[in-house]
Nucleic acid binder design. Structure first.
Lengths: 208, 208
DNA sequence: GTCTATAAGAAGATAGAC
DNA sequence: GTCTATCTTCTTATAGAC
């Protein structure tokens, strides 16, 4: 039964690089170390592999959402920490988020697959927006809301402040998905971005 | 010879919706109103149509770059105008950029095709980043540089300020490419974003 | 569960008449 | 330049032995 999972893994790798239509069942089988017909003992057809990947994604997303809820609860305490050196904390928060999204193998392959397949149907489009736009904004919005309450940051509109924090990180991420060799440059840009963000939004700092 | 161009047009439409591999020569021909074999009198093979689209893109990009140079020269004068009501000018600048990118038919189809095909080779990846990241940042960076010189905006780092202006617009654009029904919401978010951007960076306004 | 052999069908491309 | 007929190749999927 391990073969079934390995098929999914290898398929995800190939789909994320070439797109579903450009990957042949024989390619997946070869990577697993079996012949194409053997694969049909594990999945009904090629598309069932894709469906299994999407299911696995939904399962993992729910798990992550659960984990974030816990972190969210912890964040109330964390917000106290942010009072001390908000700038370094923000740099760490942004950098960790960026590097996790970029380097976590499953996350990266899945995001690239969704990027390629996002226009094929509404579900995939919605999944992409939820996972890489709405959920990060929602979670970080909660953190920033706590920081505003704690008097660390200051703004009239937490939602837009969150957008100002996350949108550059998102854009740098899409750059590195396309051109991994720009990662160092992206990390430098991100640090500058966050330090400027902090100057703009930190309480009692005045204009930069 | 008009047929040759119509083939390219219909191919671009289909490629931008389904991706190259999922579009069949017969589909393109049908939209043009001919049979598949007739298409081979105009293009050597299917991939030659794709190549022609990329060539057309490069031609248009160069034209646009030229046009931007002219606008850049004009922008010196424009920067004077920005002195009066910078916030409304910024809202107009951002909204026009967003709506042009989103609604211009060729731009939209081409961007979606590049989104789908960006991981297929280095050239496409580089073209995407140049067109939708580096060039907009470069052009807007110049405009903002002029505004800083004119004393309208204030910052230590024009590049990051430009990123703060453009990254949210870029993210909203990718949302609307996936889910066009979110355009109204995106426009509202963008206006809030730009008004807050102005509060953050406008000279002599203090913290918000 | 894996294999070889093969069926079934799709899709790109060519031949040659008009 | 467009058509119909056809070739060729590729790809998914099944049959049936081991």
């Amino acid at each position: 039964m391990d073969t079934k999972h390995r098929i999914m893994e290898e398929a995800l790798t190939l789909f994320s690089e070439k797109g579903y239509a450009n990957v042949f069942v024989a390619d997946i089988a070869e990577r697993v170390g079996i012949k194409a017909p053997s694969l049909y003992k594990h999945y009904k057809n090629k598309h069932a592999i894709f469906d299994a990947i999407i299911e696995e994604m939904n399962r993992r997303f729910l798990e992550e959402a659960g984990a974030l809820q816990i972190n969210g609860a912890d964040a109330v305490a964390d917000a106290e920490i942010y009072k001390k050196i908000p700038e370094e904390q923000l740099v760490t928060l942004g950098t960790n988020l960026f590097l996790y999204f970029l380097h976590d193998d499953y996350t990266r392959r899945f995001r690239k697959m969704l990027t390629i397949e996002q226009f094929h149907d509404k579900e995939l489009a919605a999944a992409y927006t939820k996972q890489y736009v709405d959920d990060p904004l929602s979670y970080q919005g909660m953190l920033f809301g706590l920081m505003v309450s704690a008097g660390v940051l200051q703004t009239e509109n937490v939602g837009i402040m969150t957008l100002h924090f996350y949108a550059p990180i998102y854009m740098l991420l899409t750059i590195c998905d396309r051109e991994p060799e720009r990662e160092t440059e992206a990390l430098k840009t991100m640090e500058e971005h966050i330090r400027q963000f902090n100057r703009l939004y930190a309480r009692n700092e005045g204009i930069i």
